[in-house]
Amino acid sequence: MNEMQFLTWVRGPGLDIAVSIFLLGVIWRLLEIYSLGRKKDLAAPRQAAGASGFHTVFRRSMPPAGMGMVKKSPVSYIGGYIFHIGLFFVVFLFAPHIKLINSLIGVSWPGLPSQFIDLMAVVTMAAMVVVLADRINRPVKRYLSNFEDYFTWGVTFLPVLTGWMAVQHLLLPYTTMLALHILSVEILLVVLPFTKLFHAFTLWGSRWYNGQVNGHKGVAV
């Protein structure tokens, strides 16, 4: 298979397979998790301002007030914010990505200049490297970490790296690098529903449950 055939494959059948596994995987996992249901809370509820599942879904995006958590875990918070926001920018606001999404599902929105996206990609990768170093250095994180933590880091990092290298025309011919980039995204898509990367879907539910269970008691968590 030459590089053109490779590119054609990842753009065609490869993408179809990956997207199908991703979509079916997401649906399967969501059903597997949320169909377990839960018991109704029979305790008499107490109302309080800001105490609900809905509030917690949003509130938890910020560090809890007055607990000094950012100071205690600076890399997790600051590094975490930077790479999540960075990923959002490079995935959804890079013009060629928007074009691709448009061709797939027919919706479109304005992108950002590619120099800016370039910068974002570098910042995102830097933040991810720092977060990885923190995982290895901090006793608690190292203790909690297993193969999956490093593996998911890798499959998230590679698409950013290969995409950036393709745009910069680094190392390999553009066509090959682009094909590798698409392949790495496909791997990410296939892996996402079945690893901790699935938190992208479940964290909303988790926050909602936590907020709701405690909100029932009039506690705004």
Binding site: S73, S76, R138, V140, H199, T202
Partner: peptide, 11 residues
């Protein structure tokens, strides 16, 4: 949902 959401951040 909780177990699937944990990212091992240690916070």
């Amino acid at each position: 949902s909780y177990f699937n959401s944990c990212v091992h951040c240690g916070i």
